[in-house]
């Protein structure tokens, strides 16, 4: 019979193996990234997949977030007599925080889970082994291409999401006061510095990498048949979202230090 102690130590053991496997999986990415062959066409295919899968949802969510956020902020700003600050406030909030975060969460749900499920099912039906025995490096062909695609595409989607969010915000502003779209965007960007956009892009790159690599890791290590495929997809989403929040906190902190100097 297993005592409490052994159950506990098996748990720790499993956790540490998982961490070390994950670490190897991630470092392998950087080792293989610069080695030929480069499957450029497959990367482009995957970028297309990532974009296509999430574009509609990101457009809709970004738009709604823009409208709702503006609507909610207006009364408190008006209370201070600062309604004219609305566009710059919204600009900062959307470009720096909401755009990247909303995009990352949507992509973790849509892209992360589908990568986890796809690689998971390839794993449990031995398709990954089949690639390996036909002298194709499955890590390079499946993992490197997908992670590259999410890392490239998600920052672009995040900027797009911010843009759509501001558009939603403009519609709301416009319904209250007659501003032109151009002056709205000018106002919104007045207080945004290059560092803000730069850190938003860096943040999205980190999010994109996380979503891709977690989806691949969970899929690539799926076991136990079809049940494992579902588990891989599920865990990919949960872990990716958790890490996205964690990274958000860390990156905001680091960016603040930079601003200080």
């Amino acid at each position: 019979m297993k005592t409490k102690d052994t159950v506990f130590s098996i748990g720790i053991d499993r956790y540490l193996t998982d961490v070390s496997n994950g670490y190897c999986f991630v470092t392998r990415f950087f080792k293989e990234l610069f080695k030929p062959p480069f499957h450029i066409r497959e990367v482009i295919n995957q970028c297309y997949e990532v974009g296509l899968k999430s574009l509609a949802l990101i457009s809709l969510t970004g738009f709604i977030v823009g409208i709702v956020f503006t609507k909610q902020s207006r009364p408190s700003l008006e209370g201070f007599g600062a309604a004219s600050w609305l566009p710059s406030l919204i600009g900062i909030a959307i470009v720096k925080a909401l755009g990247p975060l909303v995009t990352a969460l949507i992509c973790a749900g849509k892209v992360g889970s589908s990568i986890g499920a796809e690689l998971g099912s390839m794993k449990v039906t031995e398709q990954i082994d089949a690639m390996e025995v036909s002298a194709i490096n499955p890590y390079k062909y499946l993992v490197v291409t997908r992670v590259a695609a999410t890392t490239i595409t998600i920052p672009i989607l995040a900027l797009y999401c911010s843009f759509i969010g501001l558009l939603g915000s403009y519609l709301n502003v416009h319904s209250e006061e007659a501003t032109s779209v151009i002056s709205f965007y000018q106002n919104a960007f007045k207080t945004i510095t290059f560092l803000d956009i730069f850190s938003a892009v860096i943040k999205s790159i980190v999010f994109g990498f996380t979503i891709g690599i977690i989806g691949c890791y969970k899929g690539y290590n799926a076991t136990q048949g079809t049940r494992g495929v579902g588990m891989a997809a599920n865990q990919a989403v949960v872990l990716a979202m958790f890490l996205v929040f964690l990274e958000e906190i860390v990156i905001v902190q680091v960016a603040n230090w930079f601003r200080f100097f």
Partner: peptide
């Protein structure tokens, strides 16, 4: 392969 392992 036992399961054929075709790329589905």
């Amino acid at each position: 392969f036992q399961s054929s392992a075709l790329y589905d």
